[in-house]
Design a protein around this nucleic acid. Structure first.
Lengths: 345, 345
DNA sequence: TTGTATGCGTTATCAC
DNA sequence: GTGATAACGCATACAA
């Protein structure tokens, strides 16, 4: 099972390395006779070019920019940042230069500004969290014009010419939350869907989850599902009224990682009979999961989303691998018991 | 953020590439003056050797053998085989030659025979499923003597000089199964642990799960947990009696992927009030999961175990990466709803 | 103690 | 059309 090189093939075919190269890469300028001789050898053996050598020969520096919200504003993005750091460590030895830029997740204008800056750097690729629809369409178009490769993570948007997505199926995610909710609440109960701080900007994101959640209970029938949108600073003042207004409320599904805000209230008011399901392994969420105030967390694996998105780009540049148009990660169900198998050691 | 090469450093320090090399690799034979000059430069810049170039320079063929049970005997091993295939495709372009050898999972002697054969091939590394304790100790010793690197997957054994394990924490796995069982059965119920076809050979494997399962219910108290060992060909004849003898049996925890055997019986006898939890995403298991005969499956990710074990070896050979002594994968909880997010597209 | 030359496999260039 | 040759970055054998 020897590994054949171009030199081997040249010797076997009785031609020079240059000719073999021309045949393999179909560059033409090869006589029929030489072509036949080389092809005969190629059919005999299983030639696979040495990707290390090929990549070394190219020896380009590749520059990738990651654009995402500042994790200091919203802890959800912290693991993404860690994923970037790991990728930097992992790939810098291969001539890959990875940078990150933060935008303000409340301000579409900052999203545009940051991308303007990044565009000016003319990187080889950009990996971005497309939180704002309109603005994303615009910046993607700009990158396309400049021949800059774009990949997206976290939030799947239907945008033209927009491939290379790493994330999860949000509709399915909502359905999974619903199926878990059904398991832990009584039949025909009233269940609330709570969106925290989600204005219309990235409404699509939570709406998909909500749709999935409702579709599951619609199929069963007889459950009462109510949606409540709120701002995190008003929770203490208004959630009590909301709960009072929905007597027999048995469960709350929080569509984002801010579920700990709701859990804090529920614990505080000793309403532990209300079951809570939410998203992501933030420290605060973990705390309430371990206290069984939160019953299930759904893991969106943000770190892996970013790392995988970067891996695809790197392997594309180094080894010419194709980037999957859509890479949907498993939707992990986290309980107090299996939690720590998902945490880093 | 330019990438520096040895040549760059040599020029900056005003010495030759050879001297830089001697300093970096601490080979000695460098004058204090030259050493200082080079070090001054190295402290200034962030030099990372180009791993592609280094690996190309080495240009060795590496030979890895995977030894595991034949997947035609037991479908559990099919994904492992797929993982091997993927690794072969992925890494053959880097001069890695991966082979696999099957043994008969019922015959420790065949395990020894196969390993004898593999030892004779003198590969660079062996990745093995250590199903038999005594025999594994022996073959690992042989490999160590021959300076052949050994990694293990699936089954964690306490063996001397035995590092490089990829798998799951089985005790924890049992606890997770128990916590799920508790969610779906009534208080203080009777619950059965069923081991199918597990003779003393790889008893440790299922015993760990059983211990974990019992430890969880011990902490709660008042549940009745019974263990039943059976042969798969006797299930139809004996399971009925077992169930009759344990009136009020509310749940069954099957410690391996053969849970579909139990599910078939339960469905057939219309005993769907008995909740079933088992292991692994075999087609048969998936069928019963979708029919809600099986309520949860725990995913051991056998494919990833093998692939990751091989990746560690490959990156060790190519890029001199350290192999983690113990790599424990997340323990995934699978329901009918999130199942397909774990299946390949 | 130092520097230079060579080769790993692939590819691009340049004479012939 | 063809076949030498150089270069990518690193490591090493060898010459100075």
């Amino acid at each position: 099972m020897k590994k054949y090189t171009i030199k081997d093939i040249a010797e076997l075919a009785g031609v020079s390395k240059g000719t073999v190269d021309r045949v393999i890469h179909k560059r033409g300028k090869v006589s029929a006779k030489a072509y036949e001789k080389v092809n005969a050898v190629l059919n005999e053996i299983d030639y696979k070019p040495n990707l290390l050598a090929r990549s070394l020969k190219n020896t380009k520096e590749y520059h990738i920019c990651v654009v995402l919200p500042d994790y200091k504003e919203d802890a959800f993005w912290t693991p993404c940042f860690e994923g970037i750091q790991e990728a930097i460590n992992e790939y810098s030895s291969f001539g890959i230069f990875i940078e990150y830029y933060f935008f303000d997740l409340m301000q579409p204008s900052s999203f545009l500004e940051v991308h303007k800056k990044v565009l000016g750097l003319l990187p080889n690729a950009v990996l971005l969290a497309p939180l704002f629809y309109k603005e994303t369409v615009k910046v993607v178009a700009n990158y396309n014009n400049a021949n800059i490769l774009v990949s997206k993570f976290n939030n799947q948007l239907d945008i033209e010419n927009s491939k290379n997505f790493v994330g999860q199926d949000l509709f399915k995610s909502g359905r999974i939350a619903a199926s878990l909710m059904k398991e832990i609440t009584s039949k025909n109960a009233t269940i609330a869907i709570i969106n925290i701080d989600e204005d219309s900007n990235n409404a699509i994101y939570v709406q998909e989850k909500e749709k999935g959640f409702r579709s599951y209970f619609n199929e069963i029938g007889n459950y009462t599902i109510v949606t409540w949108n709120c701002k995190q600073q008003n929770i203490d003042d208004t959630l009590g009224d909301f709960i009072d207004n929905h007597s027999g409320l048995a469960g709350i599904f929080v569509t984002t990682s801010k579920v700990y805000k709701i859990a804090a209230f529920i614990k505080n008011k000793q309403l532990a009979h209300i079951k809570i399901i939410g998203y992501d392994l933030l420290d605060e969420n973990i705390k309430y999961l371990n206290q069984h105030i939160i019953h299930f967390l759904i893991h969106q694996n943000p770190k892996k989303q970013v790392y995988l998105g970067l891996t695809y780009l790197v392997e594309h540049f180094l080894f010419n691998r194709e980037i999957p148009a859509k890479s949907l990660l498993p939707i992990d169900i986290i309980t107090a018991e299996n939690l720590d198998t998902y945490l880093e050691v």
